[in-house]
Write a protein that binds this DNA or RNA. Structure first.
Lengths: 236, 236
DNA sequence: TCGTTCTTTGACCTGCGGTCAATCAATACG
DNA sequence: CGTATTGATTGACCGCAGGTCAAAGAACGA
């Protein structure tokens, strides 16, 4: 993936009505689906285009007719996977009512289930974030900035409107901290490759999990929460 | 890099005194040094073993005599680079005296210079963390957990002994939060020098670096600092 | 000086991303 | 319907880079 390139091959010939040909579109979709599985299961470099083609019963060359390169195919797969993630604000009304930090806890508690239900999407997200080339990583990042797939902007907005977040921090700083720590916390929780020893050092994951989530939410509350949501009285 | 493997080729025949042959050892070192530069400049996949060999004036085959594989070579290069980083506690006594959070600020303020002076080490650190395969990433993580190259354990210990850190959080959790946020914050600060566009820019960045560091330290203080170091009075 | 052991070499192999001329399928047109 | 035109599909082929290995060379010990 060199510089700013489209990951798709020839910009899909359009019909007069401006829509891409339906057959092509469908096939592209099928390729991406299989690709997601392969990249998720084997990682970027170990996944082979030939295998993907074979599983679809088509020739390897065909894949490259639809996607410029392996990088490009991966990128499309990554995008599709990430777009399937739920946004922070997509929670039951009952949870939303309880405010920012309960919402946070809600999602953390559900991480494991969500991953189980959508394993390859989550896995390819990991592969994209930690297991590809830096050039590709840059492209991915551009995408993440533009799309905000978790919807943390709205989330932070929500918290501020409710007065649960510090008003002396700008939205970006708050959001960045949230993103950084949430990502890493979830990664550590879910993948042995990235656990610095929080969940797997002593005893099995499920037992440590609850306590860790509690600790973590409290941490975030202290860091970015407004005075009114501090549970522990501080100095003075 | 498959499973638990040594990255070195044949476990270096030892002499009777238990030390590796000096010639071999020296050569290995030279290879690693050149490798660091190449991986740093081009990223993992774009770096070619042949080029590294060529620059050393040796045959490609020779490299594989010393390192099991390209992965293995990279891993050694990564380790060497990371080991060259200064530990948190390696600061002037005058700074140490001022305590945990001043020490934090000290290092943040110095990041820029440190990176300039040791560019390829930081760059290969980035490549290792975000730009290689997940299999390799697992190895890297193991190394980071075992070696604690930044010495954050001692650092956290230091803060606890001085009573500046919350005592209701265990060392692992405190340390992880510290690591995660420090890593990313530094990445954000250094983005321009290391790899423009690699990380999400926090919106309208051009805020003074000083100010952002200030904000950040304050954030961390709130999150993991004990009551006695809270600068802002809270509720009650 | 001669054998033994370690090191170096570079020709060679392999696997995989990527290309392309030839072929096939579908649609448009007379 | 038959034929032309256009786009989709194929699979043989290429090049590149990681990795191997038998043979040659260097260093060392007796």
């Amino acid at each position: 993936m060199e510089g700013i390139t489209t990951s798709l091959a020839k910009p899909t010939r359009l019909r007069r009505d401006g829509k891409p040909r339906p057959r092509s579109e469908a096939k592209r979709g099928r390729i991406v689906e299989v690709a997601i599985r392969h990249f998720a299961e084997r990682g970027y470099s170990a996944a082979r285009v030939e295998d993907i083609a074979a599983q679809l019963g088509i020739a390897k060359g065909s894949v490259f007719q639809h996607f410029k390169s392996k990088d490009g195919l991966f990128f499309e797969a990554y995008k599709k996977a990430v777009q399937s993630f739920p946004k922070y604000m997509q929670a039951p009304a009952a949870v939303l009512e309880q405010g920012f930090f309960e919402l946070l806890r809600y999602w953390l508690a559900r991480t494991e289930n969500m991953v189980r239900d959508n394993w390859s999407a989550y896995r390819i997200y990991l592969v994209g974030n930690y297991g590809t080339d830096l050039a590709l990583r840059r492209e991915i990042n551009r995408f993440l900035v533009a799309e905000d797939p978790y919807g943390w902007r709205d989330f932070v907005d929500f918290g501020r409107k409710r007065g649960e977040l510090r008003s002396d921090l700008d939205v970006d700083m708050t959001g960045s901290i949230l993103e950084w720590t949430m990502d890493r916390f979830q990664d550590a929780l879910l993948t042995e490759e990235l656990d610095p020893g929080l969940f797997r050092k002593s005893g099995p994951v499920p037992q440590e999990k609850e306590a860790r989530i509690e600790q973590f939410v409290e941490l975030i509350r202290r860091a970015i929460g407004s005075d009114k949501v501090q549970t522990v009285a501080r100095k003075h």
